[in-house]
Computed example of a mutant assay.
Amino acid sequence: MDMIFDPALVEKNRKRAWRVRDDKALFLLDIAADELADRIAIVERHFDMAVELHGATGVTAQRILQTGKVGAVMRVETDAAFAEGFQEFKVAPIEALPLEPASANLIVSPLTLHLTNDTPGTLIQIRRALKPDGLFLAAIPGSGTLQELRDVLLSTEIELTGGASARVIPFADVRDVGALLQRAGFALPVTDAETYTVRYDSILPLMRDLRAMGMTNPLMDRSRKPLSKRFLMRAAEIYAEKYSDADGRIRATFSMIYVSGWAPHESQQKPLKPGSAKVRLADALKTAEITLPSKDAD
C-alpha cells in the first residue's frame, strides 16, 4: 500500500499540539464535539459503552456523556499523555484499533480519519468493533478545507522557484466518504457537510493555528525545505490580494463532513427488491402515466 501520510510525523504533530495546548486554536474540535453530541442526543436509544477514537483533548467524550444517552466512554489515543483524567483509556495508533469485535454500542471519531493511509481498513475495524445495530459517528475535514491556503502556497512557490510541492494535504469529497462507508459494510450510511469560514489578520496567525491543531503537513512526499521569510512574506501578500475582505482580514475555509453508519442488524430497514412495489409511481404522484414509444417503432 502506498503511504500518503507519514504516521510518525502525524503522531509528532499531534503530541506537539497537545504540549502547546492553545485552546483558542481548537475551535474545530469544539465544533465537531458539539455536532456529534447533538446527533447522539436525538437518537432514541441509550448507549451503554461508547468509544472516542483519537479525540485529542477528550472534549468529544465529555460532550457525548453530557447528552445523558451514553453510559460510559473509553478513550483511545496515540499516547497516554492525552488521558486527561479519563480512567477508561487505551493507547494505539490511529490505524490499529485495540477494540474487541462487537464490544461497543457507539464509536465516535472526531477529526482523525483524514490522516489514515488505509481509510477503508480503519473503517472496517470500526464496524467490526461495533455490536450489531451499534452506531458510528465521525467528523472528517473534507474537500474545500484550506482551499485558499492551498492556492496561495502553490502560487507563491511557482512564482519564487518555478516549481511546486504539496503543502496542504488532500481532503476527501463527501460522496467518496459515503462510498467508503458502504465499502466497509456499514448499514444505512449517511453523509452531509457543513462549511465554516474563519477570518484572520494574515496568513501567519492562520498557520500558527494549524500548527496548534496538529495540522501541519504530514505528507510523505512533502518538501523538507523550511519556508523562508521571503516565501512567507510573499504568500501573505498573495493571500491578502486574493482572499481578503473589505476590512483587510483574510478568509480560511474549513469543510466538515459528518458521517453516520450502523453495524448491520436484522431489525434495520432494508430497501425493497426491484419489482416488489405494490403501488405504481404514477398513482403515488397522482398523475397520468405516459407510455413512451419503443425503440423499434417507425
Rank of each mutant, 00 (worst) to 15 (best):
residue 161 T to L: 11
residue 174 V to I: 13
residue 232 L to D: 02
residue 72 A to F: 07
residue 201 D to V: 14
residue 127 R to E: 11
residue 6 D to Q: 07
residue 134 G to H: 02
residue 258 Y to W: 09
residue 267 S to D: 14
residue 159 E to T: 14
residue 258 Y to I: 03
residue 157 E to G: 03
residue 186 F to H: 02
residue 190 V to T: 13
residue 104 A to K: 04
residue 208 R to S: 09
residue 227 L to I: 09
residue 192 D to R: 11
residue 252 A to L: 07
residue 11 E to Y: 07
residue 153 L to D: 07
residue 121 G to K: 09
residue 22 D to V: 01
residue 270 K to V: 15
residue 180 L to Y: 06
residue 160 L to A: 04
residue 293 P to W: 01
residue 249 R to N: 14
residue 276 S to Y: 10
residue 60 T to H: 00
residue 274 P to I: 08
residue 235 A to E: 01
residue 284 A to H: 11
residue 124 I to Y: 05
residue 114 H to T: 08
residue 168 V to E: 06
residue 99 L to K: 01
residue 58 G to K: 01
residue 264 P to M: 01
residue 175 R to V: 15
residue 285 L to H: 02
residue 259 V to M: 11
residue 194 E to V: 14
residue 246 A to M: 15
residue 111 L to D: 02
residue 132 P to F: 00
residue 38 D to I: 08
residue 177 V to Y: 12
residue 65 L to H: 01
residue 294 S to T: 15
residue 242 K to Y: 02
residue 249 R to A: 13
residue 1 M to E: 08
residue 73 V to F: 00
residue 210 L to Q: 05
residue 5 F to T: 06
residue 51 V to E: 05
residue 27 F to S: 11
residue 199 R to K: 15
residue 166 A to Q: 15
residue 235 A to R: 05
residue 204 L to F: 08
residue 35 E to A: 09
residue 158 I to F: 08
residue 43 V to W: 05
residue 190 V to L: 14
residue 40 I to A: 00
residue 221 D to H: 14
residue 77 E to I: 05
residue 297 A to C: 09
residue 227 L to R: 08
residue 241 E to N: 08
residue 178 G to D: 04
residue 69 K to P: 08
residue 220 M to Q: 12
residue 296 D to R: 15
residue 147 Q to E: 11
residue 199 R to C: 14
residue 204 L to E: 11
residue 294 S to K: 15
residue 54 H to P: 00
residue 298 D to C: 10
residue 206 L to E: 09
residue 82 F to Y: 11
residue 226 P to E: 06
residue 12 K to R: 12
residue 108 V to P: 03
residue 59 V to G: 00
residue 177 V to N: 00
residue 101 P to L: 04
residue 189 P to R: 03
